[in-house]
């Protein structure tokens, strides 16, 4: 890959989709994708935690945000594999996970892009309902961009991109995933109150 991975994810996704059919070239790329997503989610969590005036809280929320996204994804991977297989996909589980890593890296980039706005609103707003709605909307939007990346990847053929395949099945999976994510968020709460320990 000639350009940086973030630039490729933003401007030329096809270049990453190309790797889907060359497992032998995955090593470095998968680690990079994983790191981008982890850092993106961690930074977002850090800024999200600044709602509480305690620096320890920022890191706790950062850690919780990673748990929230990765925990929910891990729980939903089997469902995703089965759903897409039933819908006619020939992708292996490894390929699905590779695409998911790219989707999570996209989520991480969108999260990072939102940092200035999130910081600005967290800095000047103490209304808990607004903060919750804002984070909910941003997480939903970021995950939608991730899902869009995943859908395009699923439809990728070396010479062309079909645009509409798997939409229904991925939408259904997104519903299941959203329910898991919500449940996980409740399980990992509190998010906006100070607490002892790491939970």
């Amino acid at each position: 890959m000639k350009t940086s991975i973030i630039k490729t994810l933003l401007k030329n996704k096809q270049e990453i989709y190309e790797y889907l059919f060359h497992e032998e070239r995955w090593n470095k790329l998968t680690i990079k994708l994983l790191l981008i997503s982890l850092f993106g989610i961690a930074f977002y969590g850090l800024v999200m935690g600044t709602y509480v005036d305690e620096w320890q809280h920022w890191f706790k929320i950062s850690y919780k945000a990673i748990l929230l996204i990765y925990g929910s994804i891990i729980l939903c991977v089997p469902a995703l594999y089965v759903f897409t297989s039933i819908a006619g996909s020939n992708h292996t589980l490894k390929q699905i996970v590779f695409l998911l890593l790219g989707a999570l890296a996209t989520v991480g980039i969108v999260f990072t892009g939102f940092l200035p706005i999130v910081w600005f609103f967290t800095f000047c707003t103490k209304d808990i309902v607004f903060i919750r709605v804002m984070h909910g909307a941003i997480i939903f939007l970021s995950l939608s961009f991730g899902l869009f990346y995943f859908q395009q990847g699923m439809n990728y053929q070396p010479d062309k991109i079909k645009k509409h395949g798997y939409f229904g099945v991925l939408f259904l999976w997104m519903l299941v995933f959203s329910a898991v994510l919500l449940q996980m968020a409740i399980k990992l709460s509190p998010w906006f109150n100070s607490f002892k320990g790491w939970w």
């Binding site: 933003l10 980039i109 892009g113 200035p116 600005f120 869009f148």
Partner: peptide, 13 residues
């Protein structure tokens, strides 16, 4: 300054 990065990233995507 505050909204540029977000808007630019989403536009690229």
């Amino acid at each position: 300054f505050i909204s540029f990065i977000t808007a630019y990233v989403l536009n690229l995507l």
